[in-house]
Every structure is written in structure tokens, then in C-alpha cells.
Computed example of a mutant assay.
Amino acid sequence: MAAVLAELRTLRKEHTEASKDTKESLNRVETAISEVADRTTQLEQRMTDYEERLVDTEKKTNPNPNPRALRHLLHREASVAAKCEDLESRARRNNLRIYGVKEDEENNSNLLDFISNLIRTSLALTGDTN
């Protein structure tokens, strides 16, 4: 019986040591898991911050205009372009262009006298053609 008791004590001692080693290993694992969880939380927060900054940057660099406002502006631009074209066409009608006469050749003289003289010389007219 003494041998059995000695063997049981030995087993109890080994079991206590193994239990102590298991508890220490479990504490190390719990500590490592806690550190990993803290690090994961920090990384998640950083990721959230980066996503918010990215959204803000995208809003600043690529604003999406209102489609209705864009259609209105395009229509308005076409209307202004047509009006400008009409004004340019009307402005050209008030000018008389005579081919063969250079710009400002009349030298700010009396325009009627200049044109009369031009017609007489270009058509080689003789006499008084008032």
C-alpha cells in the first residue's frame, strides 16, 4: 500500500506541476490574444480614419454636379452661344467690305470722297459723276 500511496503522491505532484505549466501557458496565450485584440482595434480605428479621409478627398477632388443644374447650364451655354453668333452676324452687316482696299486706307478722311475717288479710279471714269 505504501508503494501505491507513493505512486499516487508522485502522480499528484506531476499533475500539479503540469497544471501549473498549463495555467502559465494559458496566461501567456491570453496575454498574446489580448495584445492582438488591442492591435486589431487600433488598426480598425486607423482604417476607419483613412476611409473618412479618402471620402473627404474624393468629395473635394471629384465633385458630382447636380444633373439638373448641369443640363440647365448646358442649355444656357447653347443659348448664349447662339446669341453671340447672332450679334456677330448683325455686326458684320453694318460693315461694308470692298475687296482690294486695305484696312484703314482711307486714313480717316471723308468716307464719301474716298469712295467716289475709288470708284472713279478703279472704273477709269472720266468727267464729273456726282
Rank of each mutant, 00 (worst) to 15 (best):
R93S: 06
H72C: 06
L5H: 07
V80K: 10
A18I: 03
D113F: 12
T57S: 09
P67K: 00
M1D: 04
N27A: 15
R120I: 15
A18F: 10
R9H: 02
T22Y: 15
E7S: 06
T57A: 14
T126S: 15
E103Q: 15
R68T: 15
E58S: 02
E58N: 04
M1V: 07
T40G: 04
V55L: 08
D56E: 15
A37Q: 14
S19E: 12
E35F: 07
S89C: 05
L43C: 04
N62P: 01
K13F: 02
S34H: 12
V36Y: 09
R39C: 07
R93P: 00
V29T: 10
H72E: 15
N62Q: 09
K59C: 03
A91W: 03
M47A: 15
L118M: 06
D104A: 12
N108E: 13
E58Y: 00
T41R: 14
E58W: 01
R12L: 07
N110Y: 05
T61W: 02
E51A: 02
T57I: 07
A37I: 13
P63L: 01
V4N: 03
D128K: 13
A81C: 05
C84I: 11
Q42M: 10
L96E: 02
E88P: 01
R71I: 10
E52A: 08
T31R: 14
A3C: 02
K60C: 03
R120D: 12
Y99D: 12
V29Y: 10
V36D: 12
V55D: 13
L87H: 06
R9P: 00
R76W: 04
L11N: 05
L8I: 13
L111S: 10
